[in-house]
């Protein structure tokens, strides 16, 4: 059994700068409309106006940085009719471009929008954990890029044992796919099963 990894992100450090998104886009040469790593903004709270012209509020906001979580129960793999979407021995979920029919079924099933169709390449694409970099002892592009040092990665079992699986809004409940994403919660983190419309930057997630 080869060593397998999980992503780690410290939401108390993440400032939502999106250097990870652009580093990934540049390094993997992704076209417009595709971003393997994405940064959802979770915002909530309300304002109260008082008679003296003052305000009180309980506003909060935080970011997460999410790519493919190379889940333990990868619903994308289960949904794939061709076997193109598969989980390798080292736990990386990846697309075999020579088989992919580009039906988008994996994308429908993934609550993280990890698989994305590259229309010009005619197949689904997704985060491959920078396999080519891992193989030569380098960090994934996004991890190496993070100006806030909020992103990291490490041995899957160790990380998940220590931090559990990401179960924070606006992500789906961890039980859906068992993501290999360990998150240090922001102080204002909301539970994943909240039904509040906290996702504040849908437009930026393309």
């Amino acid at each position: 059994m080869k060593k397998s990894y999980a992503f780690y992100m410290d939401a108390s450090r993440c400032m939502g700068c999106k250097a990870c998104v652009i580093a990934c886009k540049d390094g993997h040469d992704l076209p417009l409309g595709l971003n393997w790593r994405r940064v959802p903004e979770c915002t909530g709270g309300a304002w109260a106006e008082h008679a003296d012209g003052t305000y009180t509020q309980n506003v909060f906001s935080y970011y997460l940085s999410v790519a493919c979580n190379h889940c333990e129960s990868p619903v994308c793999v289960k949904a794939c009719p061709t076997g193109a979407m598969h989980k390798t021995e080292d736990g990386i979920v990846q697309v075999d471009a020579t088989r992919c029919v580009g039906c988008n079924n994996c994308a429908w099933n993934c609550p993280y929008s990890a698989p994305q169709l590259d229309k010009s390449k005619k197949h689904m694409t997704k985060c491959n954990f920078c396999r080519e970099r891992l193989e030569v002892g380098q960090k994934p592009l996004c991890v190496a890029a993070c100006p806030a040092r909020a992103l990291d990665f490490g041995p899957r079992e160790e990380l998940i044992a220590k931090y559990g699986r990401a179960n924070i809004a606006p992500l789906p409940p961890a039980s859906m796919t068992e993501p290999n994403l360990a998150v240090v919660a922001h102080k204002d983190a909301q539970p994943a099963n909240t039904r509040k419309p906290f996702l504040a930057n849908k437009e930026e997630l393309s």
């Binding site: 999106k18 250097a19 580093a23 540049d26 390094g27 040469d29 960090k139 190496a144 890029a145 100006p147």
Partner: peptide, 23 residues
């Protein structure tokens, strides 16, 4: 493509840390 600075290990206290570019 453009890669990040990774020339040193971060050691903020000593004022030595990677000059990682923003997006």
């Amino acid at each position: 493509r453009v890669d990040t600075d990774n020339s040193v290990e971060d050691n903020w206290q000593e004022g030595i840390f990677q000059v990682r570019a923003c997006p």
